[in-house]
């Protein structure tokens, strides 16, 4: 029982962080039907922004994270305008290539500026446990991350459902051409989607590396991107709450399967994520909560 609870809490805590990056992927996918392969690296960059602002500039941590979110949103606006908008959204290959190029460039720039030595990110949540039973410890970090994810999703839902820019965003994501006909300017709206997604990604990055068991270095996002993408696919790539469900399920699967099935080695969590992607895409391409895609020939 203790072991089960311990694994449950582990799963929840990593699942929640996967979920936040998955939310960022979903935001961009909703806006542009593009999977941004550089999303993880943008989140990594954002987590470095927050680290630098908090540690080297001495700004209070929460304010530093907000500033880092703004900073990365501005960066994303520039990337969208310069590198993404000139391409036809329906033609996938050039966009995949561009985001892969961004992946390499951001990774290299972070390595060149900050080096590859691991750093420890300041704690976002109090240390210690909310509740514990033997080895099963529900840490403040887990609770704090879950709470942040829930608040974030509520805010995003309100933003998309209640505000004018949210309406424009939904119009563009449902039909690019028709939204243009009713006077929505697609370019700035998609740019807004990129900014929102990258800000969310930065928050996710900060949450991820704030775990006392993790450290900040330019490579942390590479593995996480696959997990986050698996979470997004599992939940249905265009569903925000689906991303949360997908992240939690994946986190639980990772900790339970690897914990309970003896012959599966520890490192196979990533493989489990990839297998999850393949199974979902083959059996139920719209994921658990995604809207059905209608294909015309």
């Amino acid at each position: 029982m203790e072991l089960f609870l311990a694994r449950l809490f582990d799963g929840l805590s990593s699942g929640a962080t996967y979920a936040v990056i998955a939310v960022a992927l979903v935001l961009i996918y909703k806006a542009t039907t593009l999977i941004n392969f550089a999303q993880g690296e943008l989140a990594m960059l954002g987590s470095f922004f927050a680290y630098i602002l908090a540690i080297e500039q001495g700004i209070p941590l929460y304010l530093a994270i907000v500033l880092a979110m703004l900073l990365s949103a501005v960066l994303a606006a520039g990337i969208e305008r310069v590198l993404i908008r000139p391409f036809d959204p329906a033609d996938h290959l050039p966009l995949v290539i561009i985001t892969l190029g961004l992946f390499l460039v951001i990774n290299a720039v972070a390595g060149m500026i900050w080096g590859f030595d691991p750093r420890s990110f300041p704690r976002m949540f109090p240390e210690g446990d909310v509740w514990s039973m033997g080895i099963a410890r529900l840490r403040w970090y887990t609770v704090g991350t879950m709470a942040t994810v829930l608040v974030l999703l509520v805010l995003l839902t309100l933003l998309l459902k209640k505000t004018k820019i949210g309406l424009a965003f939904r119009a563009v994501s449902s039909n690019l051409e028709s939204s243009g006909l009713v006077g929505v300017r697609a370019g700035p709206t998609l740019q807004f989607g990129w900014m929102l997604a990258t800000a969310v990604g930065t928050l996710a990055g900060a949450l991820f590396v704030a775990d006392p068991f993790r450290q900040l270095d330019p490579t942390w996002a590479q593995r996480v991107l696959i997990f986050a993408a698996a979470a997004a696919v599992l939940g249905g790539l265009d569903s925000l709450w689906g991303a949360l469900a997908g992240g939690i399920i994946l986190g639980l699967v990772e900790s339970m399967v690897v914990g309970y099935v003896d012959w599966i080695p520890n490192q196979m969590g990533l493989a489990a994520a990839v297998v999850a992607i393949i199974i979902v895409l083959v059996i139920r391409p719209n994921g658990l909560f995604g809207s059905k895609a209608v294909e015309r020939v």
């Binding site: 996938h92 696959i226 993408a229 696919v233 990839v274 992607i277 393949i278 895409l281």
Partner: peptide, 8 residues
């Protein structure tokens, strides 16, 4: 999706 799966 294929790009994503194969990257995984």
């Amino acid at each position: 999706y294929l790009a994503l799966t194969t990257l995984g």
